[in-house]
Design a protein around this nucleic acid. Structure first.
Lengths: 195, 195
DNA sequence: GATTGATTTGAACGCCTGTTCAGTTAAATC
DNA sequence: GATTTAACTGAACAGGCGTTCAAATCAATC
């Protein structure tokens, strides 16, 4: 036997995904060519096909990977039966998690239409799972009188849109720290749904 | 003299813009070819160049046109000195205006990175003007004690993100009417910023 | 009905696309 | 140092890209 499986592939594989992440986020999936990705990695275009069956899979893997990570991270958060505390936890978690992965977040929101129908269904289901986690918190708060929202699913969509919007303007080098942003948004979220 | 200026151009010109709007919104700017747009209009690709100098201008005109219309429509809204009333007006105006132009809204949020640097600057400035209109309302409310927001510009970004998010899920054929959606969002916006 | 010129066609331009694959390179094992 | 094979190259494939332009078309004017 000669070289054991993947001596360079351990390095090149992740680099392909990183380059795709960066370039897709910057220019958009359709505007980025396989040759551009290869160039960023320092390899010829043909070599990419050792690491992905095609360009579409590259996009899908990034998006599904992001949603899987999001749901996994949310699952590790300690659960509380107090809806107001749960909402605060969700708010802070969402802002912190998303602020650390701006490219993946950007891609996951912008490139949905470039997924093949089958891949879209998968990603959309994961997204709905996340939305429903928030909707459930709101429903629990309505049940115990802490919240006053006539349509928990709609309110969940509103809150998530508001929170994800942070990524459109927040910069680490900016005037406000992420903690300050967290406080501002948590105050708004709390007031928007409380009775 | 023969045919006066534009006997078909009166018809074809708008149809080119409509086709570009629909296709850019559905598939994204980079994924749509001039031949596709021409096909939708029922013409050969070369004919498009009677109506636009190039593909980039087609995108820019759609985005600038949308922002101009938005600001013009907002300018016709009756002004009030009461910040709470002004905020309600902004909220309902935003939801109604954006719900009527889902394709243009979609393009204006998704295709910013496909604008040339010069065109981006123009569109970005118009967008900032709109954001500042809301920030000014919030500042006035802070000044007279109606609102409690530590960072009016941040709060404006949060509110706009929340309101624009309606377009991601609202469908005319859905369970909720636009009036109902308006009420739900107005209640959330009002509570999120009031003292 | 001839004239005029705006409108459109259809072919061509050079270049880029995603993907494939025979052949080369080079690192790990014996 | 020979062998093995994963990793990569570089050329090729068929097709599409944005854009240009001479020639054809056709409706309005005279």
């Amino acid at each position: 036997m000669a070289r054991t499986q993947g001596s360079h592939s351990d390095i090149t594989g992740p680099r392909v995904r990183e380059a795709a992440l960066t370039l897709f986020a910057r220019h958009g999936y359709a505007a980025v060519s396989m040759r551009q990705i290869a160039g960023e990695v320092g390899v010829q275009a043909g070599a990419l096909y050792n690491y992905t069956p095609d360009k579409q899979s590259l996009l899908f893997d990034l998006m599904k990977g992001h949603m899987d990570e999001l749901l996994a991270a949310w699952a590790t958060q300690p659960k509380t039966s107090n809806p107001l505390a749960a909402l605060e936890q969700f708010t802070r978690f969402h802002i912190r998690f998303h602020s650390k992965r701006p490219e993946a977040v950007f891609i996951s929101y912008m490139e949905l239409r470039n997924l093949s129908p089958g891949n879209f269904t998968v990603v959309e289901k994961l997204r709905r799972t996340y939305e429903d986690a928030l909707a459930d918190i709101l429903r629990a708060g309505v049940a115990n009188g802490a919240f006053n929202v006539p349509e928990p699913k709609v309110a969940a969509m509103a809150v998530i849109a508001m929170l994800t919007g942070v990524n459109t303007w927040y910069r680490e080098a900016g005037r406000l720290s992420l903690s300050e942003v967290e406080e501002i948004y948590w105050a708004m979220v709390r007031k928007s749904v409380t009775a």
